[in-house]
Amino acid sequence: MEKRSRSFYVLSAFFALFVLFLYGPILTIGILSFQGPQGGLTFPMNGVSLYWFRNLFEEQAVGDIWGSFRRSFALGMLVMVTTVVVSVLGGLAFRKRFAGATLLFYLSVASLVIPSILVSLGVGLIFNQLGLPVHWASSGYGSQLTWTLPFGLLIMFAVFNRFDKSYEEAARDQGATAWQTFAHVVLPIIAPSLLGVALFGFTLSYDEFARTLLTAGSYNTLPLEIFGMTTNVTTPVIFALGTLTTLFSLVVIGIFFLAVWLMSRRKDKSSDAGKGLV
């Protein structure tokens, strides 16, 4: 192996510190959530127990943690499916160049950079003036899409910019209809990237705070519930909740990566097309 320069070691150390900076705090609350029943919000550990986790599963004096988790999960799934479908359609549209394409592109970029509290406030005001009740599955759902759809569209741009059009031409030459070309050629090729879009859709929705603040109505989503807890809960139960929901996010991320990995492995193995030519 080639000898590394000094800059490699310096930068490696910098990178390691950066990773520690990213993960250190969350690991601390992971440890602190195992505090004993008398333990506080900081070190030292006052014994080790599962007390605060058990506390989460008992009847809560304030709030409705499990209800808010179920709502956040349902909303995340809803936003995920919508984001995948709408982003793929949008990506396909942008390949064709249509009148208004530039406007729509700038609109989606604007959606990323416009402060999220404006979306929250504006949607809340509209529902208010129309006399409609705000609810996580209507106003909350729509507000979250303004954050997830642009990410989905940008990923689709990246995917289609690298897409080899000759696959489609080959399919068409063989007499495939437009739908057949999409379903049997384009879709299988872009499928792993769609998992990426799905991951963005679910996790960004599941963790979204600002856009749901004024649009979720009387039934809180989990991030709103957690934020509410920060003002009136002073025990490590909030760390236990943080640890659990972070673990849940990590499991979701892991499932997506596993799916991408399985998909790419199957693709490598299953087809021997073209091998005879090499």
Binding site: L104, L145, T146, L149
Partner: peptide, 24 residues
Amino acid sequence: TAWMQAAPMALVLLAFLVAPIIMI
């Protein structure tokens, strides 16, 4: 076809981004 494919994206952004900002 392109317009129909772009329509859902456009509608969501009109309803939940453009309209709210006009409202504000």
